[in-house]
């Protein structure tokens, strides 16, 4: 079978096909694929259902797509709504515009989330860019996470650089070398551990209302604004405007700016 040249697959209108090995796959309209689909290039427009795994060098989905299996691709562009029940493994860039649900985890070199995305399991990438809403229900590992919008983290988050402008919710630890957060909205984090931390309030009329509630912050250099914290521990700590901390433990330096309330200050 392998010696044969793989054929192309074109489906238009209301079509269905069995899976198999193809060169180019073009799906238009309402298409259903039964079985595993392996191809070099996959382009889908309209409503697509794949009952099986999908493997493609490059893949592009426009419209609504459901894959009831794993997706392994060199690169993937998703415009519209996408639902992947299995693991999503992309070698290079995974772009998602619109709303997507990746239920069983995602691995990629670069992940762009524009719109709304839910990832139900572990998320591993070199770079994660969010413009919109990202819900990452389990652990996240990346070198760089850059979020403009809303980021909801359900597990551990590890990164070298972590930037967030907008809202941030996390029920686990955020562990990064460098963290920079600009608050635009109420946020809540359980724990932050880092080397450099900078949390600033956003601009605008209601900016002073946008607080970040956190249980514990631990880091070397810490600057916070508009943070409500139980504990802040570190070497050099500066608390700015709108901060309320129950207890600060510092080693080298502690600065309190005007408008910060601190319960207990201890040098260790």
């Amino acid at each position: 079978m392998q010696t044969e040249v793989a054929h192309d697959l074109h489906l238009s209108g209301n079509g269905s096909a069995m899976g198999g090995i193809y060169r180019m796959v073009h799906l238009e309209g309402l298409s259903t694929i039964d079985g595993d689909l392996v191809c070099e290039q996959c382009a889908a427009h309209g409503v697509v259902r794949v009952h099986g795994n999908l493997r493609a060098e490059t893949s592009a989905f426009h419209g609504k797509a459901d894959v009831f299996g794993d997706v392994v691709a060199g690169s993937a562009d998703i415009h519209g709504s996408m639902n992947i029940s299995g693991v999503c493994d992309v070698q290079k860039t995974l772009r998602m515009h619109g709303s997507s649900r990746l239920q069983n985890g995602v691995h990629a070199e670069v992940i762009h989330i524009h719109g709304r995305t839910h990832v139900g399991a572990e998320c591993v990438a070199r770079e994660i860019e969010v413009r919109g809403i990202a819900q990452l229900a389990k652990d996240v590992r990346a070198e760089r996470i850059d979020c403009n919008g809303v980021l909801r983290l359900g597990g551990l988050c590890e990164a070298e650089e972590f930037f967030c402008r907008g809202q941030l919710h996390s029920s686990g630890l955020i562990n990064a070398e460098k963290i920079h957060i600009r608050l635009h909205g109420k946020s809540g984090v359980q724990e932050i551990g880092c080397t450099d931390l900078r949390i600033e309030r956003g601009h605008g009329f209601f900016a002073r209302r946008h607080k970040l509630v956190v249980d514990m912050i631990e880091g070397d250099h810490i600057y916070v604004e508009n943070v409500v914290a139980k504990r802040i521990r570190g070497n050099r700590i500066t608390v700015g405007h709108g901060v309320y901390v129950e207890r600060v433990e510092y080693r080298e330096e502690f600065k309190r700016q005007h408008g910060a309330r601190v319960g207990e200050i201890v040098q260790v």
């Binding site: 590890e158 562990n175 070398e177 551990g193 880092c194 080397t195 631990e218 880091g219 070397d220 521990r233």
Partner: peptide, 16 residues
């Protein structure tokens, strides 16, 4: 941290 003379940053980096 006191005993080993390391900082929070180092500990978290090693954990990462």
């Amino acid at each position: 941290l006191d005993l080993m003379g390391i900082s929070y940053g180092q500990l978290y980096r090693w954990k990462r």
